[in-house]
């Protein structure tokens, strides 16, 4: 591979890494400044998905052209991205659910609360029966 091509790839890689670090900084500021759990989750999940994917692209562009057989590294990078994309929404969903049901969010900051209406109507239809939704 020619020298100029590798240098162009390096520049693209470092721009990806810079974007990932910038997203991390934004998430740090959001964690510090936002008022309640849900908005902090909104801020903190940016570097977990988009930032990490950008960083993985950066690593790939930086490592793979130099290696003879980059199959192992490329497979590891793809697996990291796949696991993160699959697991972060699940973890965020569970944390938000527990935060909502144990009352650790600020309801005055919510624009609409459709889950409260739903829970209320569920309680009407299931009154008397055992309430085992949680």
């Amino acid at each position: 591979m020619s020298e100029e091509f590798v240098q162009i790839l390096d520049w693209i890689a470092i721009l990806c890494l810079l974007a990932g670090a910038l997203l991390s900084l934004i998430a740090g500021i959001g964690l510090l400044r936002f008022p309640d759990l849900l908005s902090r989750m909104h801020a903190a999940s940016k570097p977990q998905v988009l930032g990490l994917l950008l960083v993985l692209v950066g690593i790939g562009l930086r490592i793979l052209p130099q290696e003879e057989t980059g199959v192992f590294s490329a497979g590891t990078l793809v697996l990291v991205g796949l696991f993160q994309v699959v697991t972060v929404p699940v973890a965020g969903h569970i944390v938000a659910r527990v935060g909502y049901r144990t009352g650790r969010i600020r309801r005055d900051l919510l624009g609409t609360d459709e889950l409260a209406d739903r829970l209320e109507s569920d309680r009407f239809t299931k009154s008397g029966a055992e309430n085992n939704v949680s």
Binding site: L17, G20, S24, G51, V55, I59
Partner: peptide
């Protein structure tokens, strides 16, 4: 979030 930052940092080291 700290874990995500350390992932990014390790990735930057590798790159």
């Amino acid at each position: 979030a700290l874990l995500a930052f350390s992932l990014t940092g390790l990735g930057a080291y590798a790159a």
